Computed example of a mutant assay.
Amino acid sequence: MSDSTYRTVVAICYPAFWVSGRPVVIGRKNMPLTGPVILAPTHLSHYDVPLLMAETPRNIDFMSVVEFLSVPFVGRLFTEMNCFFLDRGRVDLKSVRTALDRLKKGRLVSMFPEGHIREFDDSIIHGRPFKPGIARLAYLSGAPVVPCVVLGGDRFKKPSAWLPLMRTRYGVSFGQPLSARAELPEREAVQDLVQRLGDAYPRLYKTLSAAMDRKQLGRTPG
Score class of each variant (00 low, 15 high):
66 V>Y: 06
49 V>D: 00
89 G>C: 00
92 D>H: 01
122 D>A: 11
161 A>M: 00
33 L>M: 12
54 A>R: 07
81 M>K: 05
208 L>S: 05
72 P>D: 01
156 F>T: 01
214 R>P: 07
55 E>R: 10
64 S>F: 08
179 S>Q: 10
221 P>C: 03
20 S>K: 00
122 D>G: 03
152 G>M: 06
38 I>V: 12
149 V>A: 08
118 R>P: 00
186 E>R: 13
203 R>S: 06
214 R>K: 15
106 G>K: 02
73 F>P: 12
169 R>K: 07
107 R>V: 04
186 E>Q: 13
166 M>W: 13
198 G>I: 06
19 V>G: 03
219 R>S: 12
127 G>D: 07
52 L>I: 08
36 P>N: 03
127 G>C: 07
84 F>W: 05
165 L>A: 15
61 D>L: 00
166 M>H: 14
145 V>T: 08
47 Y>R: 03
177 P>D: 08
218 G>F: 02
130 F>R: 00
155 R>N: 03
105 K>L: 05
87 D>G: 01
26 I>C: 08
151 L>A: 03
121 D>G: 09
27 G>E: 02
94 K>E: 14
157 K>W: 11
173 S>F: 12
206 K>R: 12
2 S>I: 11
128 R>Y: 00
106 G>C: 04
137 L>C: 07
48 D>Y: 08
21 G>H: 08
211 A>E: 14
57 P>F: 00
218 G>K: 02
204 L>N: 04
47 Y>F: 12
16 A>W: 11
83 C>G: 01
120 F>T: 13
19 V>K: 02
106 G>Y: 06
9 V>R: 01
182 A>G: 05
163 L>R: 14
116 H>F: 13
110 S>C: 11
140 L>T: 08
13 C>Y: 12
222 G>L: 13
70 S>G: 13
94 K>P: 08
55 E>D: 10
179 S>G: 05
41 P>T: 05
134 I>A: 10
55 E>A: 14
102 R>E: 03
30 N>Q: 10
53 M>L: 14
195 Q>A: 15
